[in-house]
């Protein structure tokens, strides 16, 4: 766990052209993430949070600057990154097990079965193998999509507002579950969210981004000893400071 710059983002800029207008989604963004970190990214809509994730996983390769994962330059999508989208994106015609299997490209049948079982157990959905997505609740479906993203054992898991569409209660449970997975799997995680409490609760570091041009405005290290309880004094102070940064 020594690698301080397991993920390295160097001077990454990205501009879109919308009807001849240039929009700078990201401007010379630098970021290093250590292997054992959980980075939460917060910021107003349109500050380039999702673009950043798409660049990290290689879905968007038309940008300047470089991204390195574990020393290797990212040029195209690869299995180094798992990604969870806001909507679960499960294929409606495949069962839960088949949806997870979909992510596995080079495995024997036995290996596939073992991996599916392992990751379904990790997201506490053992026994749902044969269900179709339309038979699952929103939270269950999102857990399947997390299992699908993890089944290739990616070095980094990117979460693009994964809990945004869930109700408050399910959301709290899912936060606990994600934290549990992070501790158990030791996968580096980067999560985009709108929810400041969620960002503090899950993150070891919270990054506040500002829009037009999208860049990092401020970083907050969340100390290990912060009581991750929403009524804790330190928690409340952090929340206020982050809120202030976003709205300022």
């Amino acid at each position: 766990m020594s690698d301080k710059a397991y993920l390295r983002i160097e001077k990454v800029s990205k501009t879109y052209t919308v009807k001849k207008h240039h929009v700078t989604a990201l401007q010379e963004l630098d970021l290093s993430v250590a292997k054992d970190e959980f980075v939460s990214v917060v910021g107003a809509s349109g500050c380039g949070k999702s673009t950043l994730l798409r660049i990290i996983c290689g879905l968007d390769s038309e940008h300047s600057g470089n991204v390195y994962v574990n020393g290797r330059k990212v040029t195209a999508p690869g299995l180094h990154c798992g990604i969870v989208f806001q909507e679960h994106r499960l294929l409606p015609w495949l069962t839960v097990a088949e949806n997870i299997e979909f992510a596995l490209n080079n495995h024997t049948k036995a290996q596939k079965k073992e991996l599916i079982e392992k990751y379904l157990a990790l997201v506490e959905l053992s026994g749902t193998e044969k269900y179709y997505p339309n038979q699952l609740s929103g939270g269950m479906a999102q857990r399947v999509s997390i299992a699908r993203a993890l089944v290739n054992q990616p070095e980094i898991l990117l979460l693009d507002e994964p809990l945004g569409a869930l109700d408050a209660l399910t959301r709290l449970n899912m936060q606990k579950e994600i934290l549990h997975i992070w501790k158990k799997e030791k996968t580096t995680m980067i999560m985009v969210t709108h929810d400041i409490e969620e960002a503090i609760y899950l993150g070891t570091r919270v990054i506040v981004m500002s829009p037009r041009p999208g860049k990092i405005k401020k970083e907050f290290i969340i100390p290990d000893n912060v009581n991750k309880c929403q009524t804790d004094e330190q928690f409340i102070r952090l929340r206020r400071e982050i809120y202030h940064e976003i709205s300022a």
């Binding site: 996983c57 879905l59 999508p77 690869g78 299995l79 990154c81 990604i83 989208f85 909507e87 994106r89 294929l91 495949l94 979909f102 992510a103 490209n105 290739n152």
Partner: peptide, 20 residues
């Protein structure tokens, strides 16, 4: 959204056609 998912998961063309 499924095209993008398949890209992120590096699904081979043949499998993409058959499963998606």
């Amino acid at each position: 959204k499924f095209v993008e998912l398949a890209k992120a998961l590096q699904i081979p063309q043949r499998k993409f056609i058959m499963k998606v």
